[in-house]
Design a protein around this nucleic acid. Structure first.
Lengths: 248, 248
DNA sequence: CCCAAAAAATATGTAGACAAAATTGTTGAA
DNA sequence: TTCAACAATTTTGTCTACATATTTTTTGGG
């Protein structure tokens, strides 16, 4: 990679930092971080739906950087699972299968209770305020009816829990899991659903504030179950993936 | 990445496949997979100790490939956490801190019980045989007194559980966790330890064979605790990391 | 009119070369 | 003798150009 800097392991974590202009100099080169961030956010917010082709040359021109740069960014996104790289065919926004979707939720039910447990273990007022601050942001986006932001912030709530909990490995894993969950929602969300009701997040934060590990964990698992239940993973809605079907 | 092929998410999983000659054509180009695999295995087996400088030009000449290829491989290894990339300073084998070490074990205690639970849920004779086959390999390496292989296979046992369990996300995460655990052992293993006793793995497989989720989970957690307990994470044994110490 | 095959166009994979930065070694002065 | 500044070497970061593979279009035949 180019300058993803940072110390050993928690390499490409950093949930939402870098909210700088993204295009510092007028016609200048937008650092690799900016390119990464902009594509990543566009995917999370469903502005680049699953399956969208991401041509290298085109992206290079759009962002005004060299193709090599784009390749690096795409490789990174591919490693995080939000982009599919097929050898001689280029990159597309990933389309997790229903099976992968179920696997991801299974994993989240495993990890997230551990996250809240750790978070409660050494909780302090400052940490709690960060969580409440995020709840406010979410609520705000909701009343503004800013759909893309709501989607992104809902995922970032879970990232924030892991980050505040202070375990870098957990935080990194959660970031991957929430990204993929965003894609899954884009693909399989049953149109009837009223989406993540934000009071579930609020309830979880309340339980955390009370240092009630058991309650917080149960609420978290229930929350995940609700999200999964709101999906249609029956497999028929499978957006027939021709390439995958006739691959072997 | 170059041709890491494969379907969407479980991209760079593939635990130990590709054991082909690694140098197919005499003086020919050894595909990127081979380069990756050889470096990766060398790190896992402690033949490249933590902190080892991995110069691009040198590696390129060693493997007879272009520097670009090496850069890609290094980037991938960095993303998996086994290599540290510092912006203008190049790549080194990662040196997880004691804190990161504790975080990793905390994560493993969270995930691995879930892995065995899932594994038992749809267990079949073929799967059980794979596990037993691995136990045999481990035992073999032990009686041959092949230290590097023992280290690697001990980690791969855990990867195999996740792989056989059939959840790609879990398998990928486990692969990262076991890699980092290998580095941690290289750094912090107290010399007195008699290392992972392989009968612990055997006991776990037995419990799995009996479909005893509770017992298997407990044995797994105990196993992880034993490994962690055999380390010296007191922080004084910290292989003084000059850069980190005088950084701020 | 439709299908098949070939050729053009587009896009990806790879390599080599150049520029910038950092480390190392050397020289000179206090 | 020791420290500091300077210079040379090594190493990383980046870009541009070329080779290869794939997709699309066109052309010819059935």
């Amino acid at each position: 990679m180019t300058q993803q800097t940072v110390e050993s392991i928690p390499s490409q974590s950093r949930p939402q930092a870098h909210l700088r202009p993204a295009q510092p100099k007028a016609g200048g080169a937008p650092g690799p971080e900016d390119v990464y961030e902009r594509i990543y956010v566009a995917i999370l917010e469903h502005r680049l739906p699953p399956g969208t082709k991401l041509g290298e040359d085109r992206m290079a021109r759009i962002f005004g950087v060299s193709r090599a740069r784009i390749r690096e960014v795409l490789a990174r996104l591919a490693h995080e699972g939000v982009v599919e790289l097929v050898p001689q065919r280029g990159a597309r926004v990933a389309r997790p299968t229903p099976e992968q979707a179920r696997d991801i939720f299974e994993m989240r039910r495993l990890v997230e209770p551990g996250v809240v447990a750790r978070l409660i273990r050494d909780l302090n007022p400052a940490k709690l305020r960060r969580l409440q601050g995020h709840l406010a942001e979410e609520h705000d986006a909701r009343v503004r009816n800013d759909k893309p932001a709501v989607i992104r912030l809902s995922g970032e709530f879970h990232n924030l829990l892991a980050e505040v909990a202070g375990n870098d490995i957990m935080a990194r894993t959660m970031r991957e899991l929430t990204s993929l969950t965003c894609l899954i929602i884009a693909l399989y969300d049953a149109p009837t659903t009223d989406a993540c009701r934000d009071d579930e997040h609020a309830q979880i934060v309340d339980a955390i504030g009370d240092k009630n590990v058991d309650k917080a964990s149960r609420l978290m698992v229930a929350h995940l179950d609700h999200i999964e239940a709101s999906l249609d993973l029956s497999g028929v809605g499978d957006e027939v993936d021709l390439e995958r079907v006739f691959a072997g």
